[in-house]
Computed example of a mutant assay.
Amino acid sequence: MKVQTKSKKVNKAWLHDHLTDPYVRLAQKEGYRARAAYKLKEIDETLHLIKPGQLVVDLGATPGAWSQYLRRKFAPRDAGTGGAAVGELNGTIIALDLLEFEPIEGVHFIQGDFREDAVLAALDAQVAGRPVDVVVSDMAPNLSGIESTDSARIGLLVELAVDFAVRHLKPEGALVCKVFHGSGYNELVKLFKDTFRVVKPIKPKASRDKSAETFLAGIGLKVRPAGS
C-alpha cells in the first residue's frame, strides 16, 4: 500500500508539473503535438539552420512536433503570410521513427528501427542521392537505469546519426543530435569535433531543468565518406 501511495504522489506531481508547464500550454495554443517543438525552435533561432527549400531528415520524429516546426518553416511567406500547418511547402521533410506517426501534410514518413540495416536502406532510398541540408535527431533509447548500458545505447544512436550525416549531408550541412550528460558524453563531443568544423552544445530553455538531456549541433563536415 505504501508503494502505491508513493506512486500516486509521483504521478500527481508529474501531472501538476506537466499541466502548469508554460511550454506545454504554448504547444497547445500554437497547435504543436509536443513541447519539444520549442527545443528545435530555440536551436534553430540560435544557429539559423533551417531555411526554405532545404531537404531535412527528422530522426526519432514521433509524435511529430519537430516535423511540424520544419513544415511551418517551409511554408511560403509571400505577402507576409507563412508558418502554415497545411498547404504549399517549399522544402522536403523525411521523418523516421520506430513508433507510429500521425501524418503531417507534406512530410514523408518511414516507420522502423534506425539501428536496422533494412530501415537505413529505406531511408537512403527516400533520400535518393539528394544532398541533405540538415539532419535533426531527437532519438533516445528506452533507458534501463543502468548507466553503462544506457550510455552505450545512447552512444550507438548518436554514432549512427553521425554516420548517416557523413554519408548524406552537404559539405556545409548540419546535424543536431540529442545527447545526455553523464558517462560517454565527452566521447560524443569528441566524435562531433572530429566530424564537424563547428560544434555547439545547446541546452534549450524548453528542456526540463531536471533532465540530463542536451543537444550537440555540428556544422560543416570535416570528413567525407570513402569514394565520395
Rank of each mutant, 00 (worst) to 15 (best):
A61M: 10
K203C: 08
T20N: 14
G182L: 12
Q4V: 09
H168T: 01
L120P: 00
V57G: 04
S7Y: 11
Y32P: 04
K39T: 04
V199A: 14
L89Y: 10
V136N: 04
V223T: 15
Y23P: 08
P201W: 00
Q4N: 10
R167F: 04
V56C: 01
L99V: 02
D17A: 14
V136A: 10
T46N: 13
T5Q: 12
L216I: 03
K12S: 13
P225S: 13
L191G: 00
S67E: 09
K39M: 03
Q54R: 06
E147F: 03
K210C: 11
H16V: 12
N11P: 01
P141V: 09
G155K: 08
A206G: 11
A65D: 06
A122M: 15
E88A: 15
G83R: 08
P131N: 11
S211D: 15
V189L: 06
E100V: 11
H181A: 09
K178M: 06
V107G: 04
M1V: 13
G129L: 06
D124H: 15
D21Q: 04
P225D: 12
A212E: 13
F109E: 07
D58Q: 02
D21P: 02
P22T: 08
E100C: 09
L15T: 12
R130I: 01
K41A: 14
K51T: 07
M139N: 04
G91S: 07
S228C: 07
W14T: 01
A212H: 13
R72W: 10
L188T: 10
Q4C: 02
F114K: 08
D58I: 00
V166W: 07
I104D: 03
D58L: 05
K51I: 06
L123I: 11
L169F: 11
H48A: 15
A13F: 07
E116S: 02
I146N: 09
E42M: 12
G218M: 01
A152E: 14
T149W: 01
R71P: 06
K193G: 09
R208Y: 09
A13C: 02
G112C: 14
G227E: 15
S67F: 08
G129K: 02
D133Q: 09
L175E: 03
D194R: 12
K6S: 10
N11I: 03
V162D: 07
G83L: 11
S144L: 09
S207P: 00
K200T: 11
H168M: 00
V135G: 05
